[in-house]
Design a protein around this nucleic acid. Structure first.
Length: 407
DNA sequence: TCTGGGGTCCTAGGACCC
DNA sequence: TCTGGGGTCCTAGGACCC
């Protein structure tokens, strides 16, 4: 049974939302940033014309575009708008997968008869989003998620691209492999060593060699080259439960004093514990992440006898982990995460209620459950002068990171 | 003023038990 | 005394996504 999948990608989402909420910003080059040591999260198309890109630091962005306007991001605004947009999607199919705050997959196979065609649904959605929010999006229509996402990338902004089943092979023949979702810079480079450049090349390449080189990923790569993807569109209420909860922060300045480090670790432990308790989860394993001034990053973890969501217990584990090795450089970033999660619904009836409510109320809660925790307030921990950047990015691709080849 | 923060999945090696 | 193998859990790190 062939499916029809729509992928919707909001154009310059955060920047466009800001331009809509503040008319003075419309038509101008703006960049949404976090606070502290931060990078450009999203830039408006006017700014992109000057070469301002996601991931640039503010200094570099200013060099590219001297009259660039910096706007500190407001996650609440973005999650709210995102929720409202998902509400629109749900009017066309119940099968909506919220892929990120500005992207979604819709399986409209069962809605075609009612609305006429996938293109018509796409036009209706575009019109609704433009009318209600003044925002544009790029839409891809294809027989599966892999190809729908590829299609939506093809025309920006405000595009609509259809890849019909009979067009799959000829289209893939000329698409570079790095355009596919799932092929990052490392895999791209490894495949290039085999002389594989286009999806066509990838599909023709012997699968055994891919399997030997990449393990289970090899199989998947082969299918991707052929445009095969059977993964279903998973509505949020059927999505798997989260597997880890964590927070990290890049500090305003690199620090080496143990007491300063502990201060931030307490704050991070509290943030993690609080969120875990709200989700009704407890973790058996506690992870500490450290990034040094020179950007080398490593982690240490410790598994407890019993799971915990208690901030003090998490903090105690983190302190123990920190004591188990020697810091050799000033610290740039600290992170705390719990994994090996147990769900404690029976102990937290409130959570069950919230979950039920979430399922009933729809889009708003769905999105908030997935992305709504951006605005963490740290009640008891107030003396840390920096809170880091809490603007999450819809798409950040490292531009200047030095990758060291393994072999 | 070089380089964020939230996740998932996979691999590989070691400990430990039967 | 020696010689395996399977299974599971744990740890560290890497690749990928937004």
């Amino acid at each position: 049974m062939p499916r029809t999948i729509i992928h919707i990608d909001m154009n310059a989402f955060f920047a466009s939302v800001e331009q809509q909420s503040n008319p003075e910003l419309r038509g101008k080059p703006i960049a949404v940033i976090g606070s502290g040591r931060t990078v450009v999260t999203t830039s408006s198309y006017e700014a992109r014309a000057f070469g301002v890109k996601t991931g640039m630091n503010t200094w570099e962005a200013r060099q590219k575009c001297p009259h660039l306007i910096f706007v500190v991001g407001d996650n609440r605004k973005y999650t709210h708008t995102s929720s409202e947009i998902v509400r629109i999607f749900l009017e066309y199919t119940p099968l909506v997968e919220v892929f990120s705050i500005d992207e979604a997959f819709l399986d409209v196979t069962g809605s075609l008869r009612l609305f006429g065609s996938a293109e018509r649904i796409a036009y209706l959605i575009k019109a609704r989003i433009r009318h209600s929010f003044g925002l544009t999006c790029s839409i891809g229509i294809a027989p599966n998620k892999l190809l729908a996402k590829l299609a939506s990338e093809m025309q920006k902004p405000d595009g609509l691209t259809v890849i019909r089943p009979e067009e799959v092979s000829p289209v893939l023949e000329r698409v570079p492999i790095e355009e596919l979702c799932g092929i990052g810079s490392r895999t791209h480079r490894q495949l290039a060593l085999f002389g594989i450049r286009s999806c066509g090349d990838l599909g023709r390449f012997p699968v055994e060699i891919l399997r030997r080189k990449f393990g289970v990923i090899g199989e998947r790569l082969h299918c991707m080259g052929l445009g095969i993807d059977d993964s279903p569109v998973v509505p949020v209420e059927e999505a798997e439960e989260v597997k880890s909860v964590g927070h990290s922060m890049t500090l305003e300045r690199d620090i080496k004093e143990r007491k300063d480090i502990l201060k931030y670790l307490l704050q991070l432990s509290e943030m993690v514990g609080r969120r875990a308790r709200r989700y009704g989860v407890a973790g058996k394993t506690v992870h500490l992440t450290v990034r040094y001034a020179d950007f080398t990053t490593f982690g240490r973890q410790q598994t407890r006898k019993t799971p915990t969501s208690n901030s003090e217990e998490i903090y105690a584990e983190v302190v123990a982990i920190l004591g188990s090795f020697v810091l050799t450089q000033p610290v740039r970033l600290l992170g705390v995460r719990i994994t090996n999660l147990c769900y404690q619904r029976e102990q937290l009836p409130l959570f069950a209620e919230e979950r039920k409510k979430a399922l009933a109320t729809g889009a708003m809660d769905l999105v908030n459950n997935k992305f709504g925790d951006f605005t963490v307030t740290f009640g008891s921990i107030l003396d840390n002068e920096e809170k880091g950047s809490h603007v999450i990015s819809p798409a950040w691709r490292p531009s200047g990171i030095r990758n060291v080849d393994v072999k």
